[in-house]
């Protein structure tokens, strides 16, 4: 029961992006399309689950004085694994995410979960937490990417939606569009939550 709770909290109640506002750098930078958002989300989820598991496994061995460097080494290892695998097997996505794959290392969401959760809990809890948090992050990236792609290029996942006569709102693809759409999304969610309670 509690495992389900650990999993689902990452999707909505403690969603990394919508509730904690963590991981903004990759969020704002790569969500120019829904596909990029999904790719970034799954890559981060993989890193998050793996690092959570390893941190939880080693939590009794790592002295607290050096825990941060130890966590960073673990996270960086998995990020490099992801980067190599993406370059080897999904080259197109690797090219469109570019510099933001290695930058997963500094995604504060991942270090945050290692420090706040995985270093204090058993392995299974940590794995489930990483999975939930990662999928919540992926969901947020996908929604923002989809919104920006629909308005900014008139397409979703590369499929044209409105036909050739649609004049795309260029602004949405450019960096300011990320801030504007994230702000509006957050506002809409807060409104929805406020009404519910």
């Amino acid at each position: 029961m509690s495992l389900i709770k650990e999993f689902s909290k990452g999707i909505w109640k403690e969603n990394a992006v919508f509730k904690l506002l963590l991981g903004m750098c990759p969020l704002l930078a790569v969500t120019t399309s829904a596909e990029n958002g999904l790719g970034m989300g799954f890559a981060s989820t993989f890193v998050l689950v793996c690092s959570n598991i390893v941190v939880a496994m080693l939590r009794k061995l790592i002295p607290s004085k050096v825990r941060i460097p130890a966590f960073i080494i673990i996270i960086a290892t998995f990020v490099t694994v992801v980067q190599l695998c993406m370059e080897a097997w999904v080259y197109g996505l690797y090219q469109s995410l570019g510099i933001f794959i290695p930058l997963i290392v500094v995604n504060c969401l991942i270090l945050g979960r290692a420090e706040a959760f995985a270093s204090k809990r058993p392995v299974l809890d940590a794995a489930v937490d990483g999975m939930g948090m990662g999928l919540g992050f992926t969901l947020a990236l996908f929604i923002l990417g989809a919104v920006r792609e629909i308005f900014g290029s008139g397409a979703l996942l590369g499929v044209d939606l409105f036909g050739a006569s649609y004049q795309p709102m260029l602004l949405m693809i450019l960096p300011p569009g990320a801030f504007i759409s994230l702000g509006l999304l957050l506002a809409a969610m807060n409104k929805f939550e406020a009404r519910k309670s």
């Binding site: 130890a70 673990i74 960086a76 190599l84 370059e87 080897a88």
Partner: peptide, 25 residues
Amino acid sequence: ITLTLIAAGAGLILSMVETLTREPI
């Protein structure tokens, strides 16, 4: 010792993955 061991483990994993992905890349 702890940090050294962790870094060594990381190095080991990375060298394995690198070998695996060198040809496809």
